[in-house]
Computed example of a mutant assay.
Amino acid sequence: MSRAGNGRRVCALGVAGVLAGTVLTGCGEDGDTGGDGARGTSSAGGATQEQGTQAVRSAYDRTAEEDTAKVKLRVRTSAQGASESADGQGVVDLDDGDSVMTLTVRGQRIEQRVIDQVLYQKMPKGQAPDGKPWIKIDLGKVARKQGAGDNSMSDPARSAAYAKAITDKDVTKKGTATIGGVRTTHYRVSVDVAELPDGETLRKQVGPALPMDVWLDDEGRMRRQQLDMTLKTPTSAERSAADASSAPQRVTVRTVMDFTGFGTAMEADEPPAGQVTDMTGKALEQGKGQS
């Protein structure tokens, strides 16, 4: 497979991984576009900080209560000095993580569905294997094989538990911003990876802490979430000599998700079995020994 093809797939799978969990944990800053420049201050004292913690904790539940939402996202994946970008939009089920999306990667459109933790992608013409238009990858099986237990990073119910596990010292109010015409409050959160399900495994992959930026509307719902993850690959000593020369030391993924259109109707149907090639085995093979 060409390097470009690999990059395109990494980008697309990055989108799928995010949507399988809907609201996850991450880090980074994308700027408060349209914000009023207000900043959180320490003079507000412990009471204000506690209010911020409660707002972030409850945001997951309040957002999920809307059942579905339109999602617009931007993903940038970088490794070995090269990068790939993908944009997507569609509708996601905020309860179970199912989604229907259209992605644009390198100017090419990819239709994507995530159903019961299984990713389906309709590849551009001429790129699908075996002459079938769709591929599928069992995300849950891949996550378990890579040591992520029962795919906790892709479980929206557990992602809510992550937020509830934070303490007052982990939340900082950064100010306000206008997201899609809606006034929001921006919070930065730091989550201790060791306290997460499969924390020891995740710690090896992403480090000891996961900073997370969220923007909440006046009803306490998530309007934007940004993730900036650096995934560590094994050291050269842990790889075969053949792999060591080509495998990147780390992969960075920046993902920005905007949520609008709460309650939008969504139907996610599996493609006809005869039009699908199962690529789970290939994904497991490519991911062997990597984060």
Rank of each mutant, 00 (worst) to 15 (best):
S2Q: 05
R3Q: 12
G5H: 09
N6R: 14
G7Q: 15
R9K: 13
V10Y: 08
C11L: 14
G17S: 13
G21P: 05
G26K: 01
G26P: 02
D30Y: 11
D30Q: 06
G31L: 01
G31T: 00
D32P: 03
D32V: 06
G35C: 04
D36W: 02
A38P: 00
R39K: 11
G40W: 01
G40N: 01
S42Y: 07
S42V: 10
S42K: 07
S43E: 10
S43V: 10
A44Y: 10
G45E: 01
Q49N: 04
Q49G: 02
E50S: 12
E50K: 13
E50T: 13
G52C: 03
V56L: 02
V56P: 04
R57Y: 01
R57H: 04
R57W: 07
S58C: 00
D61M: 07
V71H: 08
V71L: 12
V71K: 04
K72M: 10
L73W: 04
R74E: 14
V75L: 13
S78L: 11
S78G: 10
Q80G: 10
G88Q: 03
Q89M: 13
Q89P: 08
V91T: 15
V92I: 08
D93V: 03
D96V: 13
G97H: 06
D98A: 11
S99N: 06
V100M: 09
L103T: 04
V105K: 01
R106S: 15
R109A: 13
E111I: 11
Q112K: 02
I115Q: 11
V118H: 05
V118Q: 11
Q121D: 13
M123H: 12
P124A: 00
K125T: 09
A128K: 05
A128E: 09
P129T: 07
G131Y: 04
K132E: 07
I135S: 09
G140L: 14
A143K: 03
K145Q: 13
A148C: 05
A148S: 03
N151V: 01
D155V: 04
A160K: 15
A160R: 15
A160Q: 15
A161Q: 14
A161W: 11
I166W: 00
T178N: 09
T178K: 10
G180W: 07
G180S: 06
V193R: 02
P197Q: 09
D198R: 08
G199D: 03
G199H: 03
G199V: 02
G199A: 06
L202G: 04
L202D: 03
R203G: 08
R203P: 03
A209Y: 11
M212I: 07
M212F: 14
M212Q: 11
D213L: 09
V214T: 07
E219I: 00
R221G: 04
M222S: 00
T235S: 15
T235P: 10
S236N: 12
S236I: 07
S236L: 05
S240F: 05
D243T: 06
D243A: 13
A247R: 11
A247I: 12
A247E: 13
Q249M: 09
R250A: 15
V253C: 02
R254Y: 05
G261K: 09
F262L: 04
T264S: 11
A265L: 06
M266A: 11
M266I: 12
E267T: 15
D269N: 14
E270K: 15
E270H: 08
A273T: 05
M279Y: 14
K282V: 15
K282I: 15
A283Q: 03
E285Y: 03
K288Q: 10
